[in-house]
């Protein structure tokens, strides 16, 4: 048997399972988005000439959810990057108990999102949660963290940032570890201050890891589901409803599978578009500039 054939055979089972679980659902949902399949059709698909897509174009709730999702992703990923970099720098510094520090810093990322979302719901509780207790201590009136439509999204962002920053930090930590210490030591000998080292050496060399973290987090944030479903259920007044949650509600609550599939595929296309733009800006352009 030729080595190439053997290698392919070894990869085959894993690739088949990946195709079933990733490729087939996308194709199936794409097809379903062209069908009417809801309680009205007895849940069996009937071709409906793109009616789902026409409905989507005029669906104010879809467009509002798209805006909510984009806003959430942009702000979350931006904050996670800044905080993640700071966290990675702290975790990279040598010192006693660094392993434990890394493990403890990683905890929020390792625990189930739904569990943590429930925890945050209690922290945000009006009027008994700890945040309101702090407000009370300063003599301020209690604040409806999860009931004020204008600001609730910010607190979903905070919970998400808290939960996923450790992951970004871990990726950037990998990047920091790949930078030879001699490079930094040489800059120190040349009289560079810490800020200059960060700007002239660390950040440029971290760029591939920053790009990877942004692409990964962007894709995940655009599909945000667990957090909002448990923390706010999309409320108040739909102000935190994400596209994934809308797709879920269409299927599981309104039992409109055709339209749910349409929302899924629209979200997927948005995701591909944005990650492609991110790829071009973050990975491709620097690659060409470096040639």
């Amino acid at each position: 048997m030729s080595p190439s054939l053997l290698n392919s055979l070894l990869m085959l089972p894993a690739l088949v399972l990946l195709a079933i679980v990733f490729a087939w659902p996308l194709l199936d949902s794409a097809w379903l988005s062209s069908q009417a399949s809801s309680v009205l059709t007895g849940l069996s698909p009937i071709a409906n000439d793109g009616a789902n897509w026409q409905r989507l174009l005029g669906d104010a709730r879809f467009w509002q959810d798209a805006a909510v999702t984009l806003r959430f992703a942009a702000v979350s990923v931006g904050l996670e990057l800044l905080l993640g970099l700071a966290m990675a720098l702290v975790l990279h510094r040598p010192g006693r108990g660094r392993g434990w520090l890394r493990a403890l810093a990683l905890l929020p990322w390792a625990l189930p999102t739904t569990v943590l979302a429930l925890g945050w719901r209690w922290i945000y509780n009006d009027p008994y949660g700890p945040l309101n207790a702090i407000l009370r201590a300063f003599g301020a009136p209690p604040y409806g963290f999860l009931t004020t439509p204008a600001t609730t999204w910010l607190f979903t962002v905070l919970a998400d940032v808290w939960k996923t920053t450790p992951f970004v930090a871990l990726l950037l930590l990998a990047g920091l570890q790949s930078i030879p210490a001699e490079l930094e030591e040489n800059l120190v000998l040349e009289g560079a201050r810490p800020g200059q080292i960060l700007r002239r050496l660390t950040l440029p060399l971290l760029k591939p890891w920053i790009s990877l973290a942004v692409l990964f987090r962007l894709a995940q944030a655009l599909g945000v589901f667990d957090l909002v479903q448990v923390l706010t259920r999309g409320g108040p007044a739909g102000s935190t409803e994400s596209l994934a949650l809308y797709a879920y509600l269409n299927a599981m609550r309104f039992l409109d599978f055709g339209y749910s599939a349409t929302v899924v595929i629209a979200t997927f296309l948005l995701l591909v578009l944005l990650t492609a733009i991110g790829w071009l800006l973050l990975v491709r352009r620097p690659l060409e500039a470096s040639r």
């Binding site: 990946l18 079933i20 679980v21 990733f22 087939w24 659902p25 996308l26 199936d28 949902s29 379903l32 692409l215 990964f216 894709a219 995940q220 655009l222 599909g223 945000v224 589901f225 667990d226 994934a244 797709a247 879920y248 299927a251 599978f257 749910s260 599939a261 899924v264 979200t267 997927f268 995701l271 990650t275």
Partner: peptide, 19 residues
């Protein structure tokens, strides 16, 4: 593998449920 690694899995729930 890279593409599937960053893919948000929630988008698969509908078809997987049917499966």
């Amino acid at each position: 593998l890279l593409a599937t690694a960053i893919f948000p899995t929630v988008l698969l729930f509908l078809a997987l449920l049917q499966l």
